[in-house]
Nucleic acid binder design. Structure first.
Length: 202
DNA sequence: CGGCCGATTATCT
DNA sequence: GATAATCGGCCGG
């Protein structure tokens, strides 16, 4: 299980370090997991794409917590999105997990999210992976570094830096520049991930 | 594969 | 009262 020190850095540093890590969720005592393929950083009140740009509210409060906690919010009237809190306490900072490569508990994940199961498009979206892993608001503010947690990270693969692509963050709408174009999204192509996982024997 | 559209409701102004 | 860190269905190429 990755400890607090791993998460304790600004989101734009944590986000690329998360690519290749294994996200594990215990559901009914069973391991569901996937390799993290895509992340986005949201850092501080200056970042006008960050929910916490407006300061502390009921929704943004988790982003001000100590690193290693979960920030989970509901959007579009139907979707839960999962973030890992980064950086020091009182600095609002988080990394959105946008895609995973399914690894363990495939049968249970298929029950959780039947659509497109076992295809490359199964869990390649921030709301898709929360469905697959059975993550919702009940886990908001959870500590991923606490013994006995039902959600935590483990080491997985360490992709070569050249395979980790960057781009602007997705879905920011009318967020002003320079935040709209900030290259704070990191991702691994599906085929590259599959190859690396196979090579590593996971 | 890419673009447009409707769904559906907590949160904030 | 407007908006949203999305998704799936449906269309056209």
């Amino acid at each position: 299980m990755l400890g607090r020190e791993f998460f304790s850095r600004p989101a734009p540093q944590l986000a690329p370090a998360l690519i290749g890590k294994r996200l594990v969720r215990l559901q009914n005592g069973q391991r569901l997991s996937g390799i993290i393929m895509e992340t986005e950083a949201y850092q501080g009140q200056n970042d006008l794409a960050c929910h916490a740009r407006v300061g502390r509210t009921k929704r943004t409060e988790p982003m001000f917590a100590q690193a290693g906690h979960a920030y989970i919010y509901f959007t579009y009237g139907m979707h839960w999105l999962f973030n890992l809190v980064a950086d020091e306490a009182d600095i609002p900072s988080a990394v959105l997990i946008r895609a995973i490569f399914p690894m363990e508990g495939l049968a249970q994940m298929e029950k959780n999210r039947p659509m497109l199961a076992h295809t490359a498009s199964w869990l390649n979206g921030p709301a898709k992976l929360t469905q697959g892993l059975g993550i919702d608001g009940a886990l908001n503010q959870h500590d991923l570094c606490q013994a006995g947690s039902t959600i935590f990270l483990e080491d997985g693969i360490v992709p070569p830096e050249k395979l980790v692509r960057t781009s602007p963050r997705i879905g920011l709408g009318k967020t002003p520049e320079p935040w709209l174009s900030m290259p704070w999204r990191w991702h691994l192509d599906w085929q590259d991930a599959a190859k690396l996982i196979k090579e590593k024997g996971l």
